[in-house]
């Protein structure tokens, strides 16, 4: 330190010169529009590249926030897609002006806990009854069906994922509309089984399975999986079909909880009919 001071003192003429010239340059750049523009022009390229790098890094940290915003927007958009609406009968007099009536809305949620390695796997979401989630609602991700709401607390929801040995989802072949039920056998988290697929149906490897819309839990046409392999055992009435889930359960981040606005009406009606 002392040496540095000595050095500066010895060369005070030079350092004073540097200081004054720096002051001059600052004055020039701050007070003269042309020089400022020229200076900024020269330096901006450098600073822009530095800023870009910094922004890239910040963007990375903001990914969570951006994801949240995007998934919220997706939920909003999804509520506007045609599958979310019920075609009202236009043959009768329309009381509503609208051709379509909203049937499904979506609540965006973040996966805060998830497992794939148990026989009964559950997913925990960061939203609950405060946000309008109720028991037995469907849960989907952008890739496809995730599961069904099992329990709800004010701020959290547990979801029985497809990876649960008791889960059973009504599935439909996308090209032929035949119905089966999708189950999981509790071993490989990427593979499920399709039951109740009658043998007269022509199956192909790669056929897509979507939700049937029969359960009032999911809208029709949400991806479930695709056929990996199928075989026909002698004397059986149904195929033995291996399917691959479209959802990678090991990599779930954001999901949508499906809220069927007409579910109660529908189940009430169906219950009444069954009683009769």
């Amino acid at each position: 330190m002392r040496n540095i001071l000595n050095f500066i003192w010895k060369n005070h003429f030079f350092f004073l010169f540097l200081l004054l010239e720096t002051v001059c340059l600052v004055i020039v750049i701050q007070n003269n529009d042309y020089q400022r523009a020229a200076f900024i022009n020269k330096t901006s390229e450098f600073f822009a590249s530095v800023n870009k790098r910094i922004t890239n890094i910040y963007d990375y940290f903001n990914l969570a926030e951006i994801n949240r915003q995007l998934s919220e927007e997706n939920a909003r958009l999804r509520a506007q897609t045609i599958t979310s609406f019920n075609l009202t009968d236009t043959n009768t007099f329309a009381i509503n002006d609208t051709l379509y009536k909203q049937e499904y809305t979506y609540i965006q949620a973040k996966v805060v806990n998830n497992s794939i390695n148990r026989r009964k796997n559950f997913i925990t979401l960061n939203k609950g009854s405060n946000h309008g989630i109720k028991k037995d609602m469907g849960v989907i991700s952008p890739q496809g069906v995730v599961g069904i709401v099992a329990d709800v607390s004010p701020n959290y929801t547990t979801v029985m994922s497809l990876l649960h040995i008791d889960s059973k989802i009504s599935a439909q072949l996308k090209n032929t509309n035949h119905i089966g039920s999708l189950v999981w056998e509790g071993i490989n988290y990427r593979k499920g089984k399709l039951n109740d697929m009658p043998t007269h149906v022509v199956l192909h490897v790669g056929d897509t399975l979507v939700t049937s819309g029969f359960s009032a839990i999911f809208p029709q046409g949400i991806d479930l999986g695709y056929v990996l392999d199928f075989s026909l055992r002698n004397g059986e009435m149904f195929y033995d079909v291996d399917i691959a889930f479209t959802v990678d359960f090991n990599n779930l981040a954001y999901v949508y909880v499906v809220n069927n606005l007409l579910k109660e009406e529908r189940s009430k009606l169906e219950k009444k009919t069954a009683h009769d």
């Binding site: 010239e21 020039v28 007070n31």
Partner: peptide, 11 residues
Amino acid sequence: TPGMHAAACVF
């Protein structure tokens, strides 16, 4: 022309 003459003079 703030600073210009000053810079020249200091130099």
